[in-house]
Amino acid sequence: MTTATGIAFQLLQSVFVVLAAPLLLGWVNQCRAWLQNRSAPSLLLPYYTLAKLFHKDAVIAHDASPLFRLTPYVLFGCMWLAAGIVPVLATDLPFAPAADIIALVGVFALARVFAALAAMDIGTSFGGLGARREMLIGFLAEPAMLMTLFTAAFISGSTQLTTIVETLAHREFAIYPSLAFAAVAFGMVLLAENARIPIDNPATHLELTMLHEALILEYSARHLALIEWAVAIKLFAYLTIGFALFAPWGIAAAGDWGTLPLAVAALALKLALAGAALALVEAVLAKMRLFLAPEFLSTAFLLAVLGMLIHFLVQG
């Protein structure tokens, strides 16, 4: 692999993820609408929304500090960075070694802290409420997420996503019960971290029940657009991390232009399936009381730990 093609792949993938992320959101919304027997909105609706928001004038509270105005850009930057690390289309990207899965969790944590700080910046009671709840979900989800990743790391002997994907994709076919556990745990964390049902309802705007929406209540126009876009990229990144760990087939190697179409096709298929599954989960489940979230996420943590124990027992 020459460095030039490597970097070309890197840039291509980053831009691809950023551009494709709202499409995924549109697809999930469409599926959900179908499942709820509504007529579905356009697949491109998230793009229209973003364009609309970008063209408006931003309205900011008098008391806002520079931190408030910086945060949307930091959030977007963090998610873009994550999109660069995760092997979405290709493994062995030149930038991938700069951050392993633990650093990836760190990126998401960084974004969360900034979002929570910005929410508290104006000093309204809802901002504080949202920040508190977001951090609650965060501290519950992070250990579960790390244990899930640890299970994969133990199986492949590495915390580099590239290496994990290569080990898992090129092994002979075998059933890893530990991975199955980790996959379920990961799915639960994914729901919680991306503010989906049953932890949060992405469609709600009722102040008392919302988590994520309370956090960004004060944002408008381009700032809101950046945050919404970052949310879409985050969902995309989480799903692709899931693919990297549990369904790594069909991914291209960096610099190998020939397998790229196949990789794109495989990714599109996997995303379509995962998006539909996500919509199905959201249609079937109801939103939980906030204080059931600890139970939900401690179950995820438990599953991840069990996966790891079983790995040590069965494969050890």
């Binding site: 944590a109 929570a116 700080l117 508290m120 910046d121 000093g123 992070e142």
Partner: peptide, 26 residues
């Protein structure tokens, strides 16, 4: 290590609290 992860995330929560309440807001 999971304890450490939990503690790290809780620390982040605590400092969001400190910073948000002391330095931000009204």
């Amino acid at each position: 290590a999971a304890t450490l992860a939990l503690a790290g995330a809780l620390t982040a929560m605590c400092f969001v609290k400190v910073y948000g309440i002391a330095f931000l807001g009204q």
